[in-house]
Structures are given as C-alpha cells and as structure tokens.
C-alpha cells in the first residue's frame, strides 16, 4: 500500500536521541557525515560501524525498520560495487579470467563505498530523520538559518512553506490512497500492463489529486489569513527550544568518536586508501 512509503520517516519514541534538541541534532548529523568521510582504514571503518550501531541502539528504532529503509539503496550500492570491482586496477591482482581482472584495491573500495553509503543513511537517519518529527525539524532549521535574515532572506517564509509541505505529505498520501481505492473499486488496474499502460492508469488518480491539492491550498490560505497570518514578523512561539546537558553530552560523544576514528586511522592503518 502507498502509505508504506516513508517520506517523513519519523518513528515516535522517547530515547535520548528523540529528546535531544533538534538544532543540535542537525549539527550532529552534519558532524556525523564529516565523521564518515574521516574514516579511511579498516579499523576506522570498524570504529564507525560500532559507533553507528551504538547510535542505533540508543535510538531504539527497530533494526527491521532500518533494514527496510536501506532497500531502495540496493541498486546504487550494487552499481558502484560492480564498477569498482571490475574497473579499479589498484593493489594486487586477485582473479583474472578472459578480459576480466579483479584487484584487491577494487574489492576494498567497493566494500568501503558500500559501508560508507549504508552508514551515512543509517547514522543520519537515527540521529535526525527517524527521531525528529518533521515539524521540529523545520523549526530547528528556521532557528539555525535565522542569521540569514540580515541578508533579507525570508527564512521564516521558507520554513513555513517547508512545514506546510511536510504537513500535507501524509494528507496527500492518504488522499492518493483513497482515490486509488475508489478507482480500483471501479475496476482500475494499477499493477499489470506495460509501463505506458500503467502510466496511463494513473491519470484517474492524478487529476482528482491535483484538484484536491489546489482546493486544500485555497482553504488553508483562507484559514491562515482569517487568523491574521502575515509572515514571520513579530511572531512568537508556543514552544521555544532550550539546550540541555543532554545536548552537550551528545556533541561531546560525537567529538570523541571523531577522535577515535582519527586515532584508528593513524595507529592501526590496516588497509588505508
């Protein structure tokens, strides 16, 4: 069913990562990405994998959910691995038959790339997207970007647009689901036939969906205006964010992990690229 598509991946919970300040979590995930690219040896990668596993354990997100989220990546991972394995000619020759030759460098790079992509997705996932509600996320982005207001960039308006877009993703998905079901009830067939036929079968879904999206936009605009919304100027918040000890602990933890990876690379460079 279409509702299974995870766009907003938020997975409700009460873990430390759920409770952390969303602004800090954005910073943490950026730092985490840096961390992933710091690792360039087997030991560094091992450290990274262990650290990510620790993050996953802290977040309390079921592993099965995370594994499912990796599925769409399978193709990219396979594709890059194949390219690396067959075309990378560094290191020692491992196998060669006919015109194909596989070198150790290729195999290592393929494995590293795979691990890197997986860790990027899992790590930022449990730090940010799985543990932060989309609304908290845009709120945090607005705060982090607010210095740009000096340059007359309408940060608030962008954040509001994001919030509205995110808010309506589930609504529109639900609507799509409903319309699809209604057309299925009239015998529409979305799952068989050639690609062209399937694309054509979506017309009875897309037209009503667009119409309802425009209707909703209209209604929302009227509702906002009738409550005197006029942009971000002078607007206060119901919940303001405050930093807690937990946020500093998390930052410190990530810094430690970074140091750990650098040390691993330096002192146990089993296979450094």
């Amino acid at each position: 069913m279409i509702r299974d598509i995870t766009l907003g991946q938020f997975f409700p919970g009460h873990s430390l990562l759920h409770r952390a300040d969303p602004r800090i979590k954005i910073i943490l995930s950026i730092l985490y990405i840096v961390l992933v690219f710091l690792a360039d040896s087997v030991s560094g990668y091992l450290f990274l994998v262990l650290f990510t596993a620790l993050l996953i354990a802290i977040s309390g997100i079921p592993v099965s959910t995370l594994v499912k989220s990796l599925k769409p990546l399978l193709f990219i991972v396979l594709f890059t691995s194949v390219i690396n394995v067959f075309w990378n000619r560094e290191g020692e020759l491992l196998v060669s038959f006919w015109k194909i030759a596989i070198y150790t460098g290729g195999v290592f790079t393929a494995v590293f790339m795979t691990v890197r992509i997986m860790m990027l997705l899992l790590g930022t996932g449990v730090i940010l997207t799985y543990t932060t509600s989309p609304i908290a996320l845009t709120d945090a982005m607005e705060r982090l970007l607010s210095p740009l207001k000096v340059l007359h960039i309408p940060v608030h308006d962008f954040a509001m647009m994001m919030t509205i877009a995110l808010r309506f993703i589930p609504t529109l998905l639900e609507e799509t689901d409903k319309i699809m079901n209604a057309q299925k009830a009239r015998g529409a067939d979305f799952s068989t036939g050639s690609l062209g036929q399937r694309a054509k079968a979506l017309i009875p879904v897309l037209i009503p969906l667009f119409i309802s999206a425009f209707r909703r936009a209209d209604e929302l605009a009227v509702a906002m205006e009738s409550r005197c919304y006029r942009g971000g100027k002078g607007r206060t918040r119901m919940t303001s964010l405050h930093l807690h000890a937990l946020d500093f602990v998390l930052l410190f933890g990530l810094a430690l992990a970074g140091a750990g990876i650098v040390l691993c690379n330096r002192f146990v460079p089993i296979y450094a690229i």
């Binding site: 319309i179 057309q183 009830a185 529409a188 067939d189 037209i207 009503p208 309802s212």
Partner: peptide, 23 residues
Amino acid sequence: FQYPEYQLFEETVARDIAFGPRN
C-alpha cells in the same frame, strides 16, 4: 466511497460514468 465526488476525473459526465464498465 465517502465523498465520491472527489474521484471524478473525466472530461464529460458520460465518460466518467463509463470508466467502470469500460474497465
């Protein structure tokens, strides 16, 4: 379905009603 008028999509009434029988 509930509020079935939101599923209409064809250019004419007759063609919309014909969607089911055509399928």
